[in-house]
């Protein structure tokens, strides 16, 4: 399966990864090679194999519903670039 360069550009944007114009061709080429490997895997007959969501042969352990964390806002906000009135400040985002 081949992938087009504009698809690579879209995925890069969604993942917030910048790929330079000089690199985009190479990245497209490499991802196409990876997809080739995936195609090869897809060709294997897996009708008898149960789908796997996690490689560990275990199931999720659960914790009791109890508050175990204390307020550590001061420590966390000491390393934040900008805070005000207990809020973290970020560049303006609005729809």
């Amino acid at each position: 399966m081949a992938i087009e360069q504009d698809e690579i550009e879209k995925i890069a944007e969604l993942a917030r990864i910048r790929i330079g114009d000089d690199q985009i061709g190479q990245v497209t080429q490499r991802i196409t090679e990876i997809l080739g490997m995936v195609d090869q895997l897809q060709a294997v007959d897996t009708s008898d194999v149960e789908p796997m969501a996690n490689p560990l042969d275990a199931t999720q352990r659960l914790r009791a519903d109890a508050v175990t964390e204390v307020n550590r806002r001061e420590a966390f906000q000491a390393i934040a670039p900008a805070v005000e009135n207990g809020l973290y400040l970020v560049p303006k985002v609005i729809d």
Binding site: R63, D65, A66, V67, T68, E69, N71, R72, R73, F76, Q77, N85, G86, L87, Y88
Partner: peptide
């Protein structure tokens, strides 16, 4: 209606001071 969050032991009380119920997991 749980007292703690789904993946961390932070409280879920409504109306608390900002970021006082945000643990390392939530951050």
């Amino acid at each position: 209606a749980t007292v703690s969050k789904i993946f961390s032991g932070s409280a879920t009380t409504f109306g608390a001071e900002p970021n006082t119920q945000a643990s390392a997991v939530d951050l």
